[in-house]
Amino acid sequence: MGIIPIEVRGIEESAVCVPVLYIEQEPYLILIRRSRKLRRHPGQISFPGGLIEKDEGPLEAAVREMKEEIGIKDGCFQVLGQLSGTVTINSRVRITPFLVLLRCKEFHLSREEVEEIYFVALESFKSTKCVEIVMPNGNVTCRYPLKDLVVWGATARIISQSLSQIEQMLKEVRA
């Protein structure tokens, strides 16, 4: 008997860049606070990214969104590979993340989409446990309670699931 594929209805496809920038020889993840004016996930901490448009693949969408949201220019980044994805709990969006090493330190935020940009040492995520939380609807996710920032939901799950992968990819490119 063959495997019958199950169609998952209502799931949209999106992609994000997980940008890393070295500051004083230490890797930092770049996170953004989404504009509170946005329809989806307003004010939340996330990686640059968005929905995949017709006729583009996940990597194309992730890079396009990174360029639009934080103003990274061609020649200023290197895509290192795909990371572990996740699905947002409430909005049912599948997220495909890509680790991106930034070579330039120049950012131009799209104020329509991004309120703030954060540089968080990778070590902060390695030394802090992603604490499990139960949502009011019973769904379970996790959060990183950092000193000045709480990273939770899909963004926290991507980081938690991909930490060892991120470290390995960064080692390979720095070798």
Rank of each mutant, 00 (worst) to 15 (best):
V150L: 07
G10K: 10
S91Q: 12
Q44Y: 09
V150E: 11
E132I: 06
A61P: 06
L163K: 02
V18R: 07
F119I: 05
E60S: 07
D74N: 13
P19W: 07
A62C: 09
W152H: 10
T96E: 10
E112S: 11
E53N: 04
V100Y: 10
S162A: 05
I6L: 15
P97K: 05
F119T: 05
I23L: 09
I30Y: 07
V93K: 08
Q161K: 13
V100G: 13
T86R: 04
Y144L: 04
N90V: 11
S127H: 00
E56C: 04
V20I: 14
P5S: 15
K73L: 12
P42A: 03
G2M: 13
L146W: 02
E26L: 08
E172Y: 00
S124I: 08
L149E: 08
A15M: 04
V134A: 03
R39Q: 05
P97G: 05
K37R: 12
P58A: 11
I3T: 14
I6Y: 13
S91M: 12
Q82G: 12
N137P: 03
T128N: 14
R39Y: 09
G49R: 02
S110T: 01
L146H: 02
E68T: 14
E65I: 07
L170A: 03
P27C: 06
K126F: 14
K73C: 12
Y118K: 05
L109A: 01
I117L: 10
D74E: 15
I89W: 02
V63H: 15
G50H: 00
V79K: 04
N90T: 11
N137G: 06
A61G: 09
I52F: 01
E112Y: 06
S110I: 00
V8E: 15
Q25A: 12
L80S: 06
T141H: 03
S124G: 07
V173K: 02
K147D: 12
E167V: 01
R9F: 14
C130A: 11
D74F: 07
I45S: 04
V63L: 15
R174H: 07
H108V: 01
E24I: 09
P97Q: 05
L80H: 06
G10A: 10
G138W: 00
E113K: 15
P145Q: 08
E13F: 01
N90G: 11
M66L: 13
T88R: 03
V63S: 15
I4C: 14
E116P: 02
